[in-house]
Amino acid sequence: MDSSSVKHQHYFEPNREITPQSKKPKLSPVLVAVLILTCVALLITAVLTISIGVGISTTQQQQVSGLQNVFVSNNKLEGEYYGAQGGIHFQSTVNGTHFYYIVSTADGELIIMMVHLRESPMIMMEMNSTAFLLMKNKQGPNDEYVIPESNIDTMESIMMGYENMTTEMLEKMDNKTVAKKSHDSLKNLSMSPQAKLIIEAALALGNTGIKGEDSQAVMRFYVFALKLSNAKASVETVPTMPSHSSKSSNLRQRRTVNCPANGAQCGAGQCPYQKYTNACFGMCGADCFCWSFVCGDCCVHNFCETHDECCAQVGFFTFTCFSVAFEIFWSNCYDIFTC
Rank of each mutant, 00 (worst) to 15 (best):
N128V: 04
Q62I: 04
I336Q: 15
F317Q: 02
S129M: 10
V324E: 14
M114C: 08
I52Q: 14
I158F: 03
I147N: 07
V40M: 15
D214G: 02
F71D: 13
A179N: 14
G206P: 02
K138W: 09
A202D: 01
P242A: 03
D143Y: 07
F303M: 13
M159T: 01
E119W: 05
F329V: 06
Y162M: 06
Y82V: 01
L186G: 02
T277C: 06
Y82M: 03
S292N: 09
T58L: 14
G282M: 01
A233G: 03
S249H: 12
P193L: 11
C271F: 05
N258R: 07
S292W: 10
Q62A: 05
E78H: 10
C284P: 07
M155F: 10
A325T: 09
P260M: 08
C284Y: 05
A225K: 14
C39L: 15
L251K: 00
H89N: 06
V235I: 10
N175V: 04
S292V: 05
L170G: 00
V47C: 13
K76Q: 11
E119Y: 05
C333Y: 11
G96L: 02
A325D: 13
N175S: 09
F337W: 12
Y81C: 02
E119Q: 14
P29L: 09
A312W: 07
G209L: 08
V70L: 08
I18R: 12
A225G: 04
W291T: 04
T105N: 02
S104G: 04
Y273N: 07
M173R: 08
G269T: 08
E126N: 07
